[in-house]
Design a protein around this nucleic acid. Structure first.
Lengths: 219, 219
DNA sequence: TAGATTGTTAATCGATTAACAATC
DNA sequence: TAGATTGTTAATCGATTAACAATC
């Protein structure tokens, strides 16, 4: 397979890559080529957008054929760093942390959750979904020993900042932040926040909009 | 309080409104006015962006003073439909559904989770975080009786589409979709997807980027 | 060949940011 | 008054979409 020259990949493109990957992985085994219009139809996107995204990966297709599916899969996995699994710790074993400890789907994203941490001694030394729970004051030692780069932050908002600082001190390089708190971290620490409130805001504002429209058309 | 003329509010703005709301609600009680630069600093945004967003809500401020905090709070809540609580069902009581059934923070977003549904008879009639779990074949009846508009979809991917269809038949108008599946629903049904894979893609691609940069600077 | 599909260049669209007069 | 802050208009930036020649 030829070497691709990867250009700058925009964040909107990065966010679509897992969707493409999902489709490509579920392709029938004997289907070696896939067209931009096929992918687009599956995702309700425009073919041109798929082609633009693929082009930014440095992949070229073949007229009348489309793109090499295997090459696409491998390139996306490599761009996302999903080719090899990365180990991660979950910090905060409340209901959300528990759910994440038990979620199987992350393996498809190259993410392997190793253990959980909590400051509640009642939770420590128990197992949640087969993973051991340690006290947060063991975080630094274990993270360094196991060379953990990714921390999943699922503590209550009030302790989000202080816990994130602990994680950074423990050598963690990337924080997946499930709290409501905007973290102010050193610039070399990667922080990505899952913002449920923003997502729900979109949903509920549309519901408001639809209702006012309905009220108008009734009048 | 004067009536605001609300203009078109863009989706990026809608997504920032919960962040603003969070800050405004945590303001000291005696602080009646708040400036765009204060909000911006708290969120690492630009003041001009905050002013633009506020302006699209139809709110005007006062030079040297800023904006009326209470008016801002009330307007944001009204735009998002968070002034009154809305009831919702969780469909799919796996680990994620369980976490959502137990999450307290939704009340701040005008969301009240009433009950859970599953197709596993072992889960039915149990209680999860104090909420009753029913069999999915009771969904239609209960949703109609209680006039439920919002459904939270936390089933496995394989049954996402079929379950969403059940929800629509039950009269549910908005689906908060936590699955990986892109849903094709009637146009009057609102669907908003929480895409963990996209979020993680951003994080892990940055990790890849940083590593290649590091490798280069070492060379 | 005919026609489907890619891939490049340009146009459009929309959001963010800048500039600065108005205002309290 | 002086100066901080709003709010409007214009500039910039970046992503999406359109157009269409090239290609297999």
């Amino acid at each position: 397979m030829e070497k691709e020259t990867i250009k700058y990949i925009s964040q909107p493109t990065i966010k679509r890559l897992p969707l493409y990957l999902n489709i490509l992985r579920n392709l029938p085994k004997d289907q070696n080529f896939v067209s931009s219009s096929y992918i687009a139809a599956e995702l309700k996107l425009e073919p041109i957008q798929v082609r633009k995204d693929v082009s930014s990966l440095g992949i070229t297709g073949q007229a009348r054929m489309g793109f090499n599916a295997l090459q696409l899969i491998e390139t996306i996995e490599s761009v996302l760093g999903w080719s090899n699994t990365r180990d991660a710790f979950v910090v905060g074993v409340g209901s959300l942390g528990t759910a994440i400890l038990g979620y199987k789907g992350f393996e498809d994203h190259g993410l392997k959750i190793i253990a959980g941490f909590d400051n509640d001694v009642k939770k420590v030394t128990t197992k949640v979904h087969g993973r051991e729970i340690f006290h947060v004051n063991q975080l630094a030692e274990l993270a360094r020993r196991m060379n953990i780069q990714i921390g999943i932050l699922t503590v209550p908002n009030e302790v989000a900042e202080i816990t994130a600082n602990l994680m950074v001190k423990a050598g963690i390089k990337a924080i997946w932040n499930f709290t409501q708190t905007k973290l102010f971290m050193p610039h070399d620490v990667i922080v990505e926040r899952v913002d449920l409130a923003s997502s729900f805001a979109v949903l509920s504002s549309k519901l408001v909009e639809q209702k006012t429209k309905g009220a108008k058309s009734e009048a």
